[in-house]
């Protein structure tokens, strides 16, 4: 089960400069664990501990097939073979 994950510039230090990597997992959480195995340190940049659990960081956007995962279950969003995942840091500030 292969899922393509598009990596933003700022996180390519974890992927040896690759713009996209493949991973697997039936949910986004499982995919991130899988990515962490091959690219140690990357998960920490995407999720944080929140209220006793783990959630996506507020200023990191993750999309599955163009849908913001916040609208389809967050870390529990289900994935299928061939899905396209895009990670994009928010463009934001004060």
């Amino acid at each position: 089960m292969a899922i393509e994950v598009r990596i933003p510039t700022i996180l390519r230090t974890y992927t040896g400069g690759e713009k996209a990597v493949t991973g697997e997992g039936a949910t986004l959480a499982a995919l991130l664990d899988d990515l962490e195995g091959n690219h140690p340190g990357i998960k920490e940049r995407l999720v944080e501990n929140k209220g006793g659990g783990v959630d996506l960081r507020r200023f990191v956007n993750v999309y599955v097939n163009d849908e913001d995962v916040r609208f389809i279950g967050g870390l529990e969003a289900e994935l299928a073979d061939g899905d396209q995942v895009v990670v994009l840091p928010a463009v934001a500030g004060g």
Binding site: N61, V86, L88, A90, V91, A92, G93
Partner: peptide, 18 residues
């Protein structure tokens, strides 16, 4: 954010832009 002290691109528009 529509704010005098904060800005943020809408997440859907951000994806379309990239």
């Amino acid at each position: 954010a529509g704010s005098p002290t904060f800005y943020e691109f809408d997440s859907t528009e951000l994806l379309a832009l990239y």
